[in-house]
Simulated assay, not measured.
Amino acid sequence: MTCPALIDFEASCLPDYGQSYPIEVALARVDGSSRTWLIRPAESWRFWDWSPEAEALHGIAQDVIARDGLPPAQVLAEMQAFAGHCQVYADADLDAYWLEVLAHAAGMHPPFPVRYLGEYFAERGYTRPQVVSALDAARERLPVEHVARDDASRLALAVRLLLDGETAA
């Protein structure tokens, strides 16, 4: 089983600090596979905001994304290929927003919809204690936060633990 896939973005600033753009994105599937992409800023984002607070959280500097980031269209194409037929979920609506920002910069439509992870849990009848237990167990195994690959992988692991019935509640 490889589906669903979980998505997480890191951005140029925190939502309260201004107009942010995506700088890193990761997709992780419940089989443990994952991909991460650094995103080269689009020209249209040139005057958007960058905050030192966000950089301190994710640890990605502007010169790194300018040098090592991939163009938005390439990131989208590779994300679509990696996601394959999986439904994609996120734990925050900001991830869907940043996917739209990324797609708009490339002159494209988002390659897939981003659904809310809470809906996935509810549709499958998981209780709040089960979900909290799975998230806690995943956080113990993958404690690093604000790194897109780790955040997406932690969510995918929590889903896997629930699917495998490895949580107590």
Rank of each mutant, 00 (worst) to 15 (best):
C3Q: 08
P4M: 02
A5D: 11
A5C: 12
E10C: 10
E10L: 10
E10H: 10
C13T: 11
L14D: 12
L14M: 13
L14W: 10
P15E: 15
D16Y: 07
D16S: 13
Q19H: 11
Q19T: 08
S20Y: 13
P22T: 14
P22Y: 13
A26S: 15
L27E: 12
L27K: 03
A28N: 06
R29I: 01
V30G: 07
D31G: 03
D31V: 01
G32P: 00
G32W: 02
S33F: 00
S33A: 03
S34N: 05
S34Y: 00
T36M: 09
T36V: 14
T36S: 13
L38H: 05
I39V: 15
R40P: 11
P41S: 09
E43G: 13
W45M: 07
W45D: 08
R46K: 14
R46Y: 11
F47P: 01
D49V: 06
W50R: 10
S51W: 14
E53T: 02
E53G: 05
E55D: 07
E55P: 00
E55M: 09
A56C: 03
A56V: 00
A56P: 00
G59T: 03
I60P: 03
I60S: 06
I60R: 05
A61D: 11
V64S: 11
I65M: 07
R67I: 04
D68Q: 15
D68L: 14
G69E: 09
L70N: 11
L70H: 15
P71A: 15
V75G: 14
V75K: 13
A77P: 07
M79T: 03
M79R: 10
A81I: 04
H85F: 01
H85W: 04
C86D: 11
V88N: 07
V88C: 02
Y89D: 15
Y89S: 15
A92P: 05
D95E: 10
D95H: 13
D95M: 05
A96F: 04
Y97L: 14
Y97M: 13
L99R: 10
L102E: 14
L102W: 14
A103Y: 12
A103F: 13
A106K: 06
A106S: 08
A106W: 02
P110Q: 06
P111D: 05
P113E: 14
Y116E: 14
Y116C: 07
L117Q: 13
G118P: 11
G118R: 13
G118K: 12
Y120R: 01
Y120A: 01
E123C: 02
E123F: 03
E123G: 02
G125V: 06
Y126N: 04
R128M: 06
R128H: 08
P129T: 12
P129M: 03
Q130E: 13
V131N: 02
S133L: 02
D136Y: 01
A138H: 02
A138D: 05
R139M: 00
E140D: 04
A148F: 12
R149P: 01
D151S: 04
D151H: 07
L155H: 10
L155A: 08
A156F: 01
A158S: 12
R160V: 08
L162T: 01
L162M: 05
L163A: 01
G165V: 00
E166Q: 12
E166R: 03
T167L: 01
T167M: 06
T167I: 08
A169Y: 09
